[in-house]
Every structure is written in C-alpha cells, then in structure tokens.
Design a protein around this nucleic acid. Structure first.
Lengths: 244, 244, 244, 244
DNA sequence: GATGAATGAGGGTTCATTCAT
DNA sequence: TATGAATGAACCCTCATTCAT
C-alpha cells in the first residue's frame, strides 16, 4: 500500500545495508528503487507539471516498471506528494546556514538575503513551486504542507535570528514575526511574483539580486536598527574608509 | 473566431437590449450566453485548475451544450484565456483610484496598501491566481500576460505616484522602480505566499491587514521620506495629538 | 420532404417563369435555389469526398442557409445522390454524339474511343467516380444507379452502333454485348484502374490516348471486321497512299 | 511504433510457438492479437469504408480494447494501411503462378485470364478495392501503393510472359506494355466496372468468365499471334478434331 | 516481487440535424 | 418561408490503473 517510510533520508543508509545483508528488500521498501522512481518523477513532473506528466513518462525516465511504481506509491498523486516532500527538503536545505554565523549583522542579512533570493527564484525552484500551487486545489493540504515545512520553517529561523540581534541590542522590533516577513519580502522585492507568473522567463542575475537585497537590508536596518548598530557600523565604516 | 468583442462590459447592456429588439444575436455574439459560459468556466477552472477541468464539466456548469461553447471559444485554452482576461479586469478594476487623490502621503499609501492587500489576498482572487500560475507552464505567455496587464500595471501606477511625491519633495528615492516593488511587498508581507500556497485557508482580517500595511508604510517612509515630509507630519501629529 | 422533381432540366425554365409569375415558389420547389445548392455541394463533395465534406462547407459554398438545404434535401446522403445524378448527366452528355454520324467505321470508332477515354479519365470525373464508389456501401444502389444510367447507357449505344455496322456487313460479331464491352475496355486499356487507384495522379495526355485507342480499334477490327471492311479500307488506304 | 514485422505470415507460426514457450509477447508484437485486430478491422472497414468505420466498431468486432489497438497501430490510418497491405497480399498471392508453366500459349492465357477475372471480381476483393478507392482521397499514396504492389506487379508479370512468347516467335507485338494492359482488360471485359459500381451485386459465374476470357484471348491472339502460332495451333486443332 | 500488456473511461473536438425566431 | 444558433451523440485518441505472467 505504498506506505511512505518515515525519515526516509536517515533510514535509507541502513536500509541499503540491510538489503545487502538480507537480500531482496520487502515490497515497496527498497530505498534505492524508491529514489530511482522519485528521480524519474522529478524530471517529468517539473518538466511538464502534474496533469501533463504521464505515468508512462515517469516509468521510462525512472527505468522501472509501471507495476513497481504502484507498489511504492498508491497513485500518481501520492508519488507527486512524495516528490514535493523531497524537493522541499532539497530547496531549503542549508539555506539558513549563513544565519548561524554571528558575523557583522548587515553583512549576514545581505548574505542570507542573496542566498534566499537566488534559491527561490531559480528556474527549477520556481517550476516546482508553480506545480505545487497549481496542484493545491486537487491535492488538499499539499500546498500548506509544502509552505509549512519550507518557507514557514525558514521564516521561523529568520525570526530567531532577529530575536538574537534584539538581545544584542542591535535591533529594536515590536513585532518580530512581522519584521521577519518584511525582511524576506524586501529581499525578493518584485522577483517572486514576476517569476511565478512567468513574466520573467529567466532567473534574475547575481547583480540584480545584490542590488535588491542591499537596498532591502538598508531599509530594514534604517527601520529597526538601534543606535548601537549605527555606532558599530560607524566604526567599521570609518575603519574601512580609513584604510587607504 | 470567437473574437472577444472589445469593451464587453460596456456593450453587454446595449447588446442585450439589441438582442431583445432585433431578435436572436449572431453566432458567438450573444453576450448573455457568453457570460453564461464564462461563469460556468470560472466555477470549474477555479475549482479544478486548467488541466483537470473538463469541457464536459463546464458544459454542465454553464448549462449550455458543448457545441455552443465551441461557437463562442475556439478551444479550451481560448475559453480559459477569456476567463482570465475577465478576472484580471475584475480584480484590478478601481484598485488604483485611491492613488489619484493627492491627500496626505502617509494616509494615501496606507489606504492604497490596504485595498491592495485586501484584493490580492481575497479567496476569489487567490484562487484565480493559483489557476493562472498552474496553467503557466502549459500556456506560454498567459501568466506573463496576466502579470503584465494586472500587477505590472499596478506597479507602474505606484511608481508614478512615488515620482509625484518626489516632485513634491516628500520622498527621496534613488531607484523608484525598486521602491515601488518594495512598497507593494511590504503591504503584503507574508500574506501572498501564505495564501497562494493555501497555508492560510482564509483571507486575512481587516485588522491584520491594517497592522501590516501601517508597519510597512512606516518602514517605507522612514527609508525614503524627506525632512519636509517629517516636518509636515510633525504638524499634523501635533495637531492630532493636541486635539483632546 | 425534398422530392426530386422529375426532369429538372426541362422544368426549370417553366418553374422559373412560374415563380416570376406567381411570386415565391413552394418550399423546396425553387429550381434556382436547388441548383445553387447542388453547385455548392458539387464543389465540396468532389473536393473532399462524401464523409469529409461538411454541411457547413456546403452551406458556405452554396450561399444558402442550413435550414434551406434541409428543405430541399432530406439529409446529406440525398443531397449527395442528387448531385451524383446531375454529374452523371453532365459526364455522359454528348459523349455518344459521334456515334450518330455514319462515317468511316474505323475513324468513327477512334473518335468515339478518344472522347470516351478523355472523359472517363479526366481528373474531375475520376474524382466523382471515386466518391461514388467509396460511398457505394453506405448508400445502397447509388453506385448501381450511377452505372446503370451512365456507363450502361453508353454501353448500349455502342452495342447499337455495332449492330448497325453488322447490318452494313462491316462487322461480324457473335456476341455484340460482349464485343461492346471489349471495345470500351480496349479504349481504356490500363487507364481506368491506374486513375481510379490514384496510381496516375494526372490524366493521360491526348497522344497517349490516341495511341491506345488506335491500337485498340485495330485489334477490335482485326477480330470482328469483315472482308468488306477490309476492302473498303483498302480503297481508302490506296487512295490516301496514292495522294502524293 | 506498430511496425509491421516483415514476413508476418511466415513468422506468425514461430511467434506463436515462441509466445507459448517464452510467455507473453512484447507490446504490439503478439501476432495472434495483431491478426485479431486486423480481422475485426477488415470486417468493419470493408463493410463501411474508411471514414464511416469507427474505432469503436473495430474494437467491438475485434474483441480487444481500444488501447490495445493503439499499441499495435499508431492510428486509424495505419491500421487501415496494414489491413490493405494484407488484403493486397492475399488477393494477388499465387495469381500469376499459372504463367510460369510454358504450356500451350492459348490455354495458358485462358487459364490465367480466368484466375485473374475470378479473383478480381470476387465479392471480397471488390469490397476491398472499393474501400481502397474510397479512401484514396484522404490517404494520399495509399491507392497508388495498392496499385503498384498489386495490379502493377501483375501487369509486369504478364508483360514478361508476353516477351517470352515473342522470343519463341509465337507473338509479334510492337508495344508489349500496352498489349499486356489490353490482355488484362479483355479478360475483365465489362466485369470490373460493373462490380466496382455495385451494378452487379454478385460475382460473375465460371461460365460467364470462361466465355469472356476465351473471346478475349481469341481476339488477342488474332491480333498478335504469328504464323508459327497459327501453325502450331493448327496441328493441335487437327489433332483434337481428328479425335473422334 | 517485478513486469508491462491490456483495459476502458474519459479527454477535447466536430458536425448533421433541429427548431425558435 | 428561410434562417443559423444550438444541440449532443459520436468521433479519434490518451493514460492511470490493474493483474496475469
């Protein structure tokens, strides 16, 4: 019945060893085959969207038989959901690492903003998001789950980061939750909607993102930065300006 | 075939009278029937998305025969495009009126921001946008056209408004285009993505929007407002605060 | 009920006068409109074949409304039959005139054979025949009726002509009916099947037909010619050869 | 897709065994199922013609599902072509064997002529030819291909046979190609057109064919036979007449 | 357990025919 | 009477799913 094994990523290694040790894995339990199927599905779904993708295409792309797919996934929708689950993981993986270094505040925000904008607007990710959005009506909760475990989690990390800065008296923010949203939006100013509606057919350039993010961070810090932040940045700036 | 008569909205009334006066309207020209079809199509497309919607569903929902639909619209795509065209018109109609009144700057921005957020995040409009986004892969340019004639046009109006404020020495902005995007995004902070991914299943409340927009406008003006704006607002604030 | 008026050609003149005298003709009785419809139908049916021709095409080509066609002809098949009836008339009209001149036998046969081959293999006529043949299964008796009133009638005329020549002691034939078929076939040697199967995409040239017909007539006369014919032709030949 | 395996007839037996030996045959490769489909298609196409035949009819008649047909044949046209290919093979198979025996010339021609007339005018073959002719407009080259690989090939064999007789000084022919056509036509005198137009609803009797063919061969030999042929036949005739 | 040939409901679209105007 | 907008059955074809092998 194509049960999705919980914690696929962590278990897959063990399962692999297991399967080598004990011989053939149980039906729908071989993580290698599961990956193989999802990889094929990824190429097809991302390329064609949910409806236009055919199980035959996926069969071909994955190099497994139709029947096997149906052992691992109950139907097209479940396969798609599993894929999205994986994609979500891949997209948002490591995206927030940069927030863990307690560097200079402005530069940390800029670095993070650039990574965020770059990822979210990359062709691959936009495609995936479009597919999820388009399928949201047909597959209840799928969009919600995607958001919850992707963007929402990122949002929480940003909020935590802001709280840390507040602790250090670098920021003064009434509504941290809102501020976190504002920061994210400023980093994507105009880009997300342009990309998702295919008004932009190409991902934005590094320069463009840099310009947008720097402007957004400036605005953000002008609004929420404390005197201490200004003072610290003043030193740095002086130092930097004093260099030559 | 199935040409969209220009100014459908304005003409439909006359045409209706006309059809009562002169008898049956020409094939594919009856605005009443056209509306009937589009209304049926709206329910089905919005509910299921482009691919999953079947012409049979639409036939049933619209209460007309299959053949009739194909007299009015050459095929499924054209019907969908016509629907989206209408939706776009409805969504963005009058949205920018508030920008024409050269009121107090802050309040104008707040008023506009609230209208914008309210519209864009309304259940109906979110549904429509989801449908467009989902169909963007299959119908090249349709998403782009939607964006261009909807959000893009709004963006241009915002930019023009900002330019006017710059003229009046109320704002000082390097990159007006970017600033316009920033303003829009701040008004929607977090809302658009939450809605479009169906993480939020209900439209935000008036209060929530008010809070978000006011915060966004504050940040925007703190970043781009001139001394003159501060001075003018100071007077007002004093006046207001002096009231009681 | 779309009754085909008998003797359309002869009556049409009277009907026309009638309609001018008495005003509008009865439903389905106006021969002008009938011709108009058939003319449109001819262009469409010959061009596309029975199945591929649409009543809309015919409507457009004929310049009359759908309803009107259905007043004159009960359905597509009847319209087609009526057209074929007319075509048959046109194709075989005057084809046999040359047999009425009691000229030199050989030359009469050659002349007739050439007219016959020319007509039967002309692109237009081949198309019509193909359409009739293709529709024969769907419309019982139509092919038979076409043959009966077309080729069969011609065959009878040829047989009559041969009988006349027998009377004049120019031919000696056991089975005149068979001889008439043989003559016809010899004139079309290879052409009919090549054309009807679209192996030949162009009608044969005059020269080709001339060669085939002369050879066929020679064979025919060698088989059925009497001594008297030989004698008479000898004189002529001598006369001709003696000329220079 | 749906490639016609070469030598279907010869291989089908092996394939059948193969499929019994090795289990299920590959998709679109099972010759039994292929035959089953073509047999159903034959009944429907021959009965209704190309256009009027529906894939549903064929599905029902063949006793296979719609999808299966489309595994074996890419579309309606390809199925039809495959059928015609088979029919052509069946019709013309062995038809020319009699020409290989260098018997008495006249009797060989008579025997062959009778086989030819019998085959070409048999109900089954006439039906098939009608179907091909009717479809010739919609499927370019199909009629041509049928003619080329059927009647044309036969024509070439006849021409070759005549050339052999010329070598043996039994015939004297200027234009062998034309003579071959003449011979064929004489054997079918009147029959082909009568049958193809459904004027004759039944195939001609053996007697009728015998009469027609003998008459045609006589005419043919009277036209093209040499003195040597006459002499040889004289002996035979004397021998025969001397019998009693 | 894995396979992929077979299924058949349902897809978008066409068009002969009807009937209100 | 003549019209042509509307109908809806039927068209060819696709593809998610099943199940015999």
């Amino acid at each position: 019945m194509a049960e999705t094994p919980p914690n696929v990523e962590n278990e897959s290694c063990d399962d692999l060893l297991e399967s080598l040790r004990r011989g053939r894995p149980a039906a729908g339990q071989d993580p290698v085959k599961r990956s193989q199927i999802i990889d094929g599905a990824r190429r097809v779904f991302i390329d064609k969207g949910f409806e236009a993708a055919s199980m035959n295409d996926i069969t071909r792309e994955a190099g497994v038989s139709k029947g096997t797919i149906y052992v691992y996934f109950a139907n097209k929708e479940e396969l798609f959901e599993a894929l999205i689950e994986e994609e979500r993981g891949t997209i948002f993986k490591n995206m927030y690492d940069v927030l863990d270094k307690s560097d200079n505040l402005r530069e940390t925000l800029v670095k993070f903003g650039k990574v965020l904008a770059l990822k979210i607007t990359s062709a691959k990710v936009i495609q995936a998001q479009r597919t999820v959005i388009g399928a949201s009506d047909r597959i209840p909760d799928m969009g919600a789950r995607f958001y919850e475990r992707g963007p929402k989690r990122g949002h929480d990390k940003v909020a935590a980061f802001l709280n840390a800065a507040i602790e250090r008296d670098l920021l003064r923010i009434d509504d941290v939750d809102l501020a976190a949203y504002q920061f994210t939006e400023l980093c994507l100013a105009g880009l997300f909607r342009q990309c998702i509606f295919a008004y932009r057919t190409k991902a934005p350039t590094q320069d463009e993102i840099d310009r947008i993010v720097r402007s957004g961070v400036s605005m953000f810090l002008k609004a929420y930065g404390t005197e201490r932040l200004v003072a610290e940045e003043g030193h740095q700036t002086i130092a930097v300006e004093a260099k030559p």
